[in-house]
């Protein structure tokens, strides 16, 4: 298993390097740089002043030089400074990371804790009312855009209950209740799509597994229905679900950008969107690299879990 993990990590490094080059180039291929933004409303600035500003922000030199400055700094933990606030980017990341992490964890928990049982019930009660209800629910979940649901939830609770989630970020360690009330609506909004995917995947794999010989054998041996489902069927049905959850982390991070903006949560996505509109290269690069790293790490974790659930995979 150790060798397998090391091999996977070794694969992750070149992936990250390629991603970093891609990010660096894409950011610079955006039309307009921060100098254009900074001087956007100023019609009296001369080219000399603009050049001075470019130098002040460290945007001088060729792309190669700029990339090397960035990547060598990043390798040593120095992500540079935000071009807009001059804060160290590592501080910007550290401020935003807990918010997004919490949102993702909560969203995943909701998706899995509701999606898996719904999928099991749907499979076990196939073609009955509960199954139809779950399937319709799944379709609705797949069809609803998360930003629309978020706006709707926000307007609904404000209009009907005169309540919105607390506006200022509260750490779960300071006040878990306030924190939960702040995150519950965003987490629901972002999790619905993943929940529907999980539900449908669990249903499909459970139906497949329930028809397998070893399940029939277990039943024939007199093992209780509950035990067959939970111990024999579900464990095997969860393997593809774990893959899906790994992929869904990417979807969730993407969705988080919009959801964080709607709910005013100062997380990675929100900061990234602000940075993109302001052409704040170091922040865009760091945030995107972080997202790429999270995605790669999540998939690495999925692969490891795969090996745990099905030892044949890591041995192979």
């Amino acid at each position: 298993m150790g060798g397998y993990i090391l091999k996977r990590i070794a694969f992750a490094i070149p992936t990250l390097i390629v991603v970093s080059i891609g990010i660096f180039l894409m950011v610079r291929l955006l039309p307009g740089d921060i100098i254009d933004i900074l001087f956007g409303g100023d019609l009296s600035a001369s080219e000399e002043v603009k050049e001075q500003a470019r130098e002040q922000l460290g945007l001088n030199g060729s792309y190669l030089e700029q990339y090397w400055r960035w990547i060598s700094g990043a390798a040593q933990g120095d992500l540079g400074f935000s071009l807009r606030s001059t804060e160290p980017v590592s501080n910007v990341v550290l401020d935003a990371l807990p918010v997004t992490l919490e949102l993702l964890i909560l969203a995943l928990l909701i998706a899995v804790l509701i999606g898996v049982p719904l999928g099991v019930i749907s499979a076990v009660k196939r073609d009955r009312a509960a199954d139809y209800a779950a399937r319709v629910g799944g379709l609705v979940g797949l069809s609803i855009p998360s930003f629309w649901l978020a706006t709707l939830l926000l307007l609904f609770t404000s209009r009907v209950f005169g309540w919105v989630p607390p506006l200022n970020y509260v750490s779960p360690f300071d006040d878990p209740i306030a924190n939960l009330s702040q995150f519950i609506l965003p987490a629901i909004s972002i999790s619905v799509f993943t929940m529907a995917i999980v539900m449908r995947m669990v249903r499909a794999t459970m139906l497949e597994v329930l028809g397998q010989d070893y399940v029939r054998t277990a039943r024939a041996k007199g093992v209780s229905r509950r035990k067959v489902i939970s111990k024999h069927a579900l464990r095997n049905a969860l393997i593809p679900v774990i893959t899906i959850v790994g992929f869904e982390i990417g979807v969730l991070i993407g969705g988080a950008a919009i959801i964080e903006t709607i709910f005013g949560l100062p997380g990675i996505g929100y900061v990234l969107l602000q940075a993109i509109s302001g052409r704040d290269y170091p922040v865009i690069q760091a945030m995107t690299l972080l997202i790429a790293f999270t995605f790669i790490f999540a998939n690495l974790l999925v692969d490891i879990l795969y090996g745990v659930l099905d030892p044949r995979i890591s041995q192979g």
């Binding site: 706006t151 926000l154 307007l155 209950f161 919105v164 506006l167 709607i262 005013g264 100062p266």
Partner: peptide
């Protein structure tokens, strides 16, 4: 006084209606 940054317009509307801002 607090200046709360709420980039989304509908979020501002909801917060206004709920008395949060």
């Amino acid at each position: 006084m607090q200046l709360k940054i709420l980039g989304d317009e509908q979020a501002r509307v909801a917060a206004l209606r709920a008395g949060a801002i």
